[in-house]
Amino acid sequence: MQAVNTPIQENEKLNANTNEAERKPSGAEQMNDSAAKVGKTVGKPFAKHPKMTMRNVDVFYGDKQAIHDVSLDIGKNEVVAMIGPSGCGKSTFLRCLNRMNDTIEICKVSGEIKLEELDVYHPKQDVVPLRARVGIVFQKPNPFPKSIYDNVAYGPRIHGLVERKTDLDEIVENSLRRASLWEEVKDRLHAPGTGLSGGQQQRLCIARTIAVSPEVILMDEPCSALDPIATAKIEELITELSEKFTIAIVTHSMQQAARVSHRTAYFHMGKLVEVNDTKRVFTNPEHELTEAYITGRFG
């Protein structure tokens, strides 16, 4: 946590003006009329040293709008957690960041998403180099039905990152070490990856993602299919990884968001309600909907 204090403090100044935008109005919290209460995003959606910048992002599934005018920054080496009730669009938003939504034909994205200077949704932008820079870890562990080694080596292989077998071995070992899986699997690198336990599989998936050395790692509820011990391991891992990578994580567990993230974004029915330092969100949220959600009144 120590390492990332600086960007957050800097963010304070940048976001100071938006703080005034909306104070929480009093009244009963009802999920049904809550959509009306979502106005402009409150808190600090912008970062001083942004790795990824999203401005006025709208996402449509056919006629249905899933994301309404979301603007958010993810700072360098920052862990941003996205929380919110089911169906609020946080996963959809996350998948926009490396264009995984391209596989859904009816999905249309407008607005601006940038990875540093790279326009993610530029019509001429190829998804292959983009996804090499923005990796993703999915909700359910999905190792390839191949050996552990081949799982990790797959990314470097298809991108042609290495020429010699020894280099590849090194990448595989380093990635597995960073995913803190090396000690558990070093004797059976050629056993199938699908034979590992759920938590090990998810760490294998993380190792597979970091083997390509992306700059940003997107995590879509990476622990929702895991038991508490495996979850703890992954959370520890996320904190370690944040030293090298920029991480955006979608989670259903507020404790998890509180434990691993620097800033937390609360989504509600396709709108970004509040972004603030994680501590602030969980202790003194600005928006009444955020408060309602974290105190368990709905979600």
Binding site: V128, P129, L130
Partner: peptide, 10 residues
């Protein structure tokens, strides 16, 4: 999920 995994790696 296998397709996603492959596409997600680029």
């Amino acid at each position: 999920s296998v397709r996603d995994a492959a596409l997600g790696l680029g």
